[in-house]
Design a protein around this nucleic acid. Structure first.
Lengths: 202, 202
DNA sequence: CACAAAAATGCACAAAGGGCAATTTTTCCC
DNA sequence: GGGAAAAATTGCCCTTTGTGCATTTTTGTG
């Protein structure tokens, strides 16, 4: 049998090394202040290898946010099977996913995106992938307990409402200490978001 | 005084001509089946001029959807000042914006995007611009009648819930006759979407 | 350890992106 | 209407990308 576990792990590592190098170079020299070659040098790979993992610089920079590494669909949503509704399941998923470190990286990406429309596209694209991931997980978990069209609408509404954070129109202040996950401003904003989503709009 | 009206109109026309040419070429030969030069030839401009209007092919193709041309923020949301809530205002805006012709173009873009992640990014980007446009209009129209954070959340939720259509996971069947705007499947889907948004999620 | 599969690399070439300067077109103002 | 100013279009040029293909190197298996 083929257990390519180790090989796959190395591929992920390569991908992350390249993305991380790309992000750091972008912070240091601006998104347009370096070339793909530089990423390769910094990460210890060739230009050609970079092209095997990413389509362009922006792709690599944005995906340094790897929001969905370490996530396994089954794991992430197993808690949802009892005592939870789809909405509260997503709520837990979102709050768990945006750790302080992720939010810090996100802030960096947002400020880079501010004057760089193309990068902005790739950053929102990364979020969309996270949304797809969550949508699949939720749909698997709840099956036919809700009308067919419920999940895509719910998922869209939730992630749409989170977008202002990603997009930078809502500016999240982050605490210095990594430990204080629960009380950060992102979670306060989520309180408001989910309250609105539960109550409905007018 | 500087009345650049005619000049601006010509710029818009040029932009649209290039975008339209790009879209048609994409339909005929596939997104990767032609080069920027071809777009210029088809639209009657040079490669260099194309670069003045768009960053790449995908940018041009996606923006052939020009959802927000002919829109003036003031005009579009003037009806909102009486008898409407923010949500119902957006609802009218959305239903008005997605005419049969726009939806047809959107379907074309979706099928092109299906196997082309980069184009997909640019198409959702075009929708985001529409969202920004609507967000500004709505915020102007309602000012301080609602809590400060209300509009971005509402706007995000609405456009997020519309995204499945854009994204192609909801497939809209369109009537042959252009006249039948009200009863098309898109509007039926919107009925469900806005019902959920009003009622709230659980 | 040797063999097969897969990843990284090198090479080459068509194409993209964009600065700069020249040219053409549009607008402004008398 | 005509000439000056502003803006749009274009050509030129050169660096950077993207990618197919062949080759080398690394990894996993028996």
């Amino acid at each position: 049998m083929s257990d390519h576990g180790l090989r796959d792990k190395k591929k992920v590592a390569t991908r992350q090394a390249l993305a991380e190098a790309a992000f750091q170079l972008a912070v240091e020299h601006g998104v347009d202040g370096f070339v793909v070659e530089d990423i390769g040098v910094k990460a210890g790979y060739s230009r050609r290898t970079f092209a095997n993992y990413f389509t362009c610089k922006e792709d690599a920079i944005a995906n340094s946010l790897s929001l969905n590494d370490y996530m396994e669909p089954g794991d992430q949503f197993s808690f949802s099977l009892k005592d939870h509704t789809p909405l509260s399941t997503i709520e837990v998923f979102i709050r768990r996913s945006f750790t302080i470190n992720k939010l810090k990286r996100l802030k960096g990406l947002i400020s880079l995106s501010r004057e760089h429309p193309t990068l902005r596209l790739y950053v929102t694209g990364a979020l969309m992938e996270m949304q797809d991931f969550a949508a699949r997980g939720i749909a698997d978990a709840y099956g036919s307990d809700y009308p067919e069209e419920y999940y895509p609408i719910l998922m869209g509404a939730v992630f749409g409402a989170v977008l202002p954070v990603i997009d930078g129109s809502f500016d999240v202040n982050l605490p210095e200490d990594e430990e204080n996950e629960a009380g950060n401003e992102f979670n306060q904003y989520m309180d408001i978001v989910f309250a609105h989503l539960r109550k409905g709009f007018k």
